[in-house]
């Protein structure tokens, strides 16, 4: 350091640093659990609900600890979180209700894997 500096560097708080690494550890463990579910469970609505729940767990840790929102005052917290809750509501309803309704209205058939009647009729052709 060439210039004379009167900045006082405070010592690191070991507890605080450990807290940061603890959150990182939780994020890795939750991701590992997601991998375990991905390879042991068959696809379905239950698995999707588990994945979304674990994702929200991870998002909560990132937002409240890494982004420090959990330590801001309540009004700031809610002004960020409430709009996002409405968005999540929108996503869930668009996926589950609208997506399924459009699929039903189009008469789209799922591919079942059995050799009979697997030919898809695509009206777009």
């Amino acid at each position: 350091m060439e210039q004379v500096s009167n900045v006082v560097v405070q010592p690191a708080d070991r507890k605080k640093i450990w807290g940061i690494w603890k959150v990182a550890l939780i994020l890795f463990i939750v991701t590992s659990i997601e991998y375990v579910f991905a390879f042991t469970m068959s696809k379905g609505m239950l698995l999707n609900v588990i994945f979304v729940t674990l994702t929200i767990v991870k998002a909560t840790y990132i937002v409240s600890e890494f982004m420090h929102l959990g330590h801001e005052i309540k009004s700031l917290m809610y002004s960020i979180i409430l709009p996002m809750l409405f968005i999540v509501w929108l996503i869930v309803s668009l996926v589950n209700i609208e997506g399924a309704a459009i699929k039903g209205a189009r008469g789209t058939q799922d591919f079942t894997g059995s050799n009979g009647a697997t030919e898809q009729v695509d009206e777009g052709h």
Binding site: I91, L94, V95, N96, E98, G99, A100, I102, K103, R106, T108, Q109, D110, F111, T112, G113, Q120
Partner: peptide, 11 residues
């Protein structure tokens, strides 16, 4: 999600 859920799925 919308496009995916309205597309034919592999079952």
């Amino acid at each position: 999600a919308f496009i995916r859920w309205s597309a034919p799925a592999y079952k």
